[in-house]
């Protein structure tokens, strides 16, 4: 596994994206909001709800303020990159398909030890859980493989298969490196000059670690949290008002045009906007946590607040889908 022959970080991403595109996935761009994991992007969290099948893949930069180490720890990052694949419903022998993707990025399965170890994923704040494995390659966890069972506190049908590749870990593995910062990100096709992960991202790690741990203003963060929460809560209430009105109209078979109006109200209701507000709260919470501003006693309470928002959004998303599809 000489470094020269292994894929660069960007080639790794290209290859995996191409692989999944060739297997019927829609390629989506990373979600342009702070999330702690690819699962939190609406392309996973909301799309797994309801009956509509989808195969989708996207890279997702994932921010975890408390995991930052000022760029000084060779194995921990404030922001890492996940490649997220959602297969709804999962095809037969989806594990074999996944293993093919490893072959595609240059892993000769006969030269390694691969195990699927039980690891059941759970995100209590999202009312979401699934069963699955962590995929271990020569003792390194490189992928999280989950069969979603519940999301937003609701049972799923069909369920979705979720494959989350840890791109830095895999690149580190392919290039046989002790430090993430030494990963070759790109290689100039003409000169062969290499740019490393550190060249591209070290300053971000340094500055965002400093921001999360030392600079972020606690007072403002609490304020932001309250504001985002307030707006999100209002939106949720409005939705249910619309939904009730719509249901009443359908029941009473009132004038058709009115019904259509209400239908349109529902159809255009900004559930996605409400979800972004909930995500903002989640990220703000993570920043407060990294700042050490949340005591253990407060923690449970704040998490419950955010759970109400995220699960609340999932509920209206599902209801919106049901009501507007029925019309």
């Amino acid at each position: 596994m000489a470094g020269k022959k292994s894929l660069t970080f960007q080639e790794l991403l290209f290859t995996l994206q191409r692989f999944w595109a060739e297997h019927g996935c829609v390629l989506q761009q990373p979600y342009d909001l702070e999330v702690g994991a690819g699962t939190m992007s609406p392309d996973t969290f909301l799309r797994v709800l309801g009956p509509k099948p989808i195969n989708i893949a996207y890279a997702q930069p994932s921010r975890r303020p408390a995991d930052g180490r000022y760029g000084e720890n060779p194995n921990r990052l404030f922001r890492h990159t996940q490649l997220q694949v959602i297969l709804k419903p999962p095809p037969e022998r989806v594990q074999e398909l996944y293993l093919e993707s490893l072959v595609a990025i240059g892993i000769d399965l006969r030269q390694h030890d691969i195990k699927f170890e039980e690891d059941n994923w759970e995100w209590p704040v999202g009312g979401a859980w699934g069963v699955g494995w962590q995929v271990m390659l020569d003792g390194q966890e490189i992928t999280q493989f989950t069969y979603f069972q519940q999301c937003g506190g609701m049972d799923l049908d069909p369920i979705s298969g979720e494959i989350t590749y840890g791109l830095e870990r895999i690149a580190q593995f392919l290039q046989d490196l002790d430090s993430i910062y030494d990963i070759v990100w790109s290689r100039d096709p003409v000169t062969g000059a290499e740019l490393t992960y550190g060249d591209v991202r070290l300053h971000e790690e340094q500055q965002f670690s400093a921001y999360s741990f030392d600079y972020a203003d606690i007072y403002s963060l609490w304020k932001h949290l309250d504001l985002y929460e307030e707006e999100c809560t209002k939106l949720l209430a409005v939705f249910w008002k619309y939904a009730d009105a719509y249901r009443l109209e359908v029941e009473n078979k009132t004038v058709e045009s009115l019904e259509k109006d209400m239908w349109k109200q529902l159809r255009f209701f900004p559930t996605l906007g409400a979800y972004e507000l909930a995500l903002k709260c989640s990220h703000t919470f993570n920043l407060l946590d990294a700042r050490g501003a949340i005591s253990v006693t407060e923690r449970v309470g704040v998490m419950a607040r955010i759970r109400n928002l995220i699960v609340g959004v999932a509920k209206i998303y599902a209801e919106q889908g049901r009501l507007t599809a029925a019309a």
Partner: peptide, 20 residues
């Protein structure tokens, strides 16, 4: 062929864990 590769991989993982 594979023994040194697998060995090196496992050693690297353990090293990172011990470092932490």
């Amino acid at each position: 062929v594979n023994e040194p590769i697998i060995k090196q991989g496992n050693e690297r993982v353990l090293r990172a864990r011990f470092n932490d």
